[in-house]
Nucleic acid binder design. Structure first.
Lengths: 119, 119
DNA sequence: ACAATAGTTGAGCAGGTATTCAACTATTGT
DNA sequence: ACAATAGTTGAATACCTGCTCAACTATTGT
């Protein structure tokens, strides 16, 4: 109990004022959880290429599979993740399912990312 | 060999024109690799909170450990990843290592992310 | 010189995840 | 009705990754 705060942590508080200010401004945990989950969708090579391709044109599963040199199954699994996080939408026309981006935020996120890595 | 292109994929090309246009515009693989790696840093709950905290104030390892209720070791491991991807910089003053964001792109990326999840 | 503390590091482990495989549904054309 | 094809799905596997633990370095104060 010699610590100023009884957290499950092996530290004394070195700059208590800083910690208190930052903690006071901190969004609730759920927002960080959601944010991490959003960026998780961009953090895989396959998914990021799918998202980029769909930012250019609407495509079906086979198109994406050919474009990326992967199986329909692998693509379909990733598209499911992207559907569940509401990053892509789809529309079935006949046998074929056409995928496209759910909204324009995805393009914005790409732009910011490319700005960072291309410098 | 009945496929129009001999990729290791179980598909026919359904919309060859679409695939060709997208492929022609596609950045080289390295860029997607780098982009995925960048977003990987934002895709973990701990790292995203560290980055957010550092976007508010410069902090040392102990401050971050207390703020997030984690061990110095866990924080230090994550800071190492963030250092290696050039998202944070650090400065040792005495015994204490002060971490801060490497550039302003990180804040921009946060903003875009929050825009998306808060709707 | 010594104790105490900030921070780093590598090994090990537990949980997570991306692809493969095989089986399945749905739709089209004959 | 049947064959062919687009797409999905769940289980299995192999890989990746985040935390813990213990040992270590570096710096400060006494």
């Amino acid at each position: 109990m010699e610590n100023k705060e009884s957290f499950s942590c092996d530290c004394d508080v070195i700059h208590e004022d800083v910690v208190n200010r930052v903690r006071a401004a901190m969004p609730e945990g759920k927002h960080f959880y959601d944010l991490a989950n959003l960026y998780k969708m961009f953090s895989d090579n396959t998914r990021v290429r799918i998202l980029w391709a769909l930012s250019r044109e609407e495509m079906c599963v086979c198109d994406l599979a050919v474009l990326l040199g992967m199986t329909k199954s692998a693509i379909s699994h990733q598209l499911k993740s992207l559907r569940l996080t509401n990053l892509v939408k789809y529309e079935k026309r006949g046998k074929i399912v056409y995928y496209s981006l759910a909204d324009s935020h995805v393009k914005d996120i790409f732009e910011k990312g490319f700005e960072h890595i291309l410098e």
